[in-house]
């Protein structure tokens, strides 16, 4: 390879570039996109080095020329989705839905078990403690996990990722009878899970995007040789 410097910064940038596309575009397209970016950045770095810049300057300038990682990634994502049927279950969305369904499913299963155990316990305090934990912890953890999976900055995918939460609530309403545990679970789902899950998914995705933007902003804005 023509480049001899420590290319960890370039690799980190390319990883950031590829992250929103993972689990969305197919592996060959993703690999091709990475190779394009690496070759392009190497050419830019070579050009800046031959222009008299130090290695670190050349890397920073090359990344600035290439542009924000999320801009290129979102353009690639749009391009990928453009040739596909406009369906609410396109691959971008369905990937987010499956992750969301899995994480919120695990969380709700754990919550049900916690309530069952608490109900078997004669101490009413145990039920209250379990209810509080079920209220707060599982939807937040599941929300964070989902927020890390969905593509950043993709509001449509984010919205669809939350749909399993509503599906869970509906399913719970249909399956659970008037038993105390069922009513409690349903109340928790509607009053706490939905808002807590939605907030944590949105917040996590927003933080990821914000981190990418901060990284981009730390790069030089103007390029002059």
């Amino acid at each position: 390879m023509p480049i001899s410097f420590d290319d960890s910064v370039i690799q980190a940038f390319v990883n950031m570039l590829a992250a929103p596309l993972e689990r969305t575009v197919d592996d060959s397209t993703l690999s091709e996109f990475r190779n394009h970016a690496l070759f392009h950045l190497e050419c830019l770095i070579d050009e800046y080095r031959s222009g008299g810049h130090t290695e670190d300057e050349a890397v920073a300038l090359a990344i600035a020329d290439f542009g924000p990682a999320d801009l290129a990634a979102m353009a690639m994502l749009d391009e990928w989705c453009r040739g596909r049927k406009p369906s609410p279950f396109s691959r971008t969305s369905s990937s987010a839905v499956w992750w969301s369904f899995a994480w919120f499913g695990i969380a709700s299963g754990c919550s049900l078990l916690a309530i069952q155990f608490a109900e078997m316990c004669p101490n009413p305090l145990a039920l209250q403690v379990a209810s509080t934990l079920v209220c707060l912890i599982p939807p937040v953890i599941a929300g964070i996990a989902v927020g890390r999976c969905v593509p950043t900055g993709n509001l449509r995918a984010l919205g669809i990722a939350l749909s399993p939460l509503f599906a869970h609530a509906l399913l719970a309403a249909c399956l659970m009878g008037p038993a105390r545990g069922g009513i409690l679970f349903l109340t928790l789902f509607v009053c706490v899970w939905l808002p807590a899950g939605a907030v944590s998914v949105t917040l996590t995705s927003w933080l990821r995007r914000n981190r990418q933007v901060r990284y981009q902003n730390s790069m030089p804005k103007e390029v002059s040789l």
Binding site: M1, P2, F33, N35, P68, A72
Partner: peptide, 29 residues
Amino acid sequence: KQGTLYPVLHGLERDGFVIGQWEHPDGER
């Protein structure tokens, strides 16, 4: 912004407007 060029090339290739061929020069990416 040069990173946005590759999605454009990907689209042009998919639509059949351009054709791409990978080259593997010795010792180069």
